[in-house]
């Protein structure tokens, strides 16, 4: 556990890091970035908390079991979207033209409408869940191992 100054600043900063990560995930289909990058940003927030508060403290609120559930659901969202297109073909983008993320952006330079892309933003979201939970679990496990603790199985 680090000094009180570091802990207080980390407490404030984590909010911004999480929002930035979510921003990158949600805008994945219109700007550089996407599910993996945003998830990695969120996981870096977890790293900051582990450094500031120590892995023992973080372990109480961030359980490996729960992270593993989130990770699996992220993967399931991704493949579920692919299966949902099976009416036409596997991975068919069935949401284009519907009210959900259905907009079709104009060709050429455009302001970057988020409400486009069909299943791609949803898949980005799934990947983001998987990466943030998976990377956090890996880092937490490594932090706990280096202290000589066993993770729960």
């Amino acid at each position: 556990m680090l000094s009180k100054i570091v802990r207080t600043i980390s407490d404030q900063l984590i909010l911004f890091i999480l929002i930035y990560g979510l921003y990158i995930i949600i805008h994945g289909h219109v700007t550089p970035g996407g599910g993996f990058q945003g998830g990695a940003v969120i996981a870096s927030g977890v790293v900051m908390m582990i450094v500031a508060f120590g892995s023992g403290e973080i372990k109480k609120s961030l359980r490996e079991r729960h992270l593993s559930v989130v990770e699996s659901s992220g993967a399931l969202i991704f493949i579920g979207m692919a299966f949902a297109g099976m009416g036409t073909l596997f991975f068919y983008n069935f949401l284009v033209g519907t009210p959900v993320f259905g907009g079709i952006p104009p060709t050429g330079p455009n302001p970057g409408d988020v409400w486009t892309g069909g299943v791609i933003p949803l898949m980005n979201f799934g990947v983001g869940l998987k990466v943030s939970a998976g990377l956090s679990a890996v880092i937490l496990a490594m932090a706990l191992f280096s202290r000589g603790e066993e993770t729960e199985e």
């Binding site: 990770e71 699996s72 493949i79 692919a82 299966f83 073909l89």
Partner: peptide, 20 residues
């Protein structure tokens, strides 16, 4: 019609639901 994709997708689904 869909067997080439499903042969890969079905085991992948199994891999993802196994932890749950």
């Amino acid at each position: 019609v869909h067997s080439p994709a499903l042969v890969v997708a079905v085991p992948l689904l199994a891999a993802f639901i196994t932890p749950l």
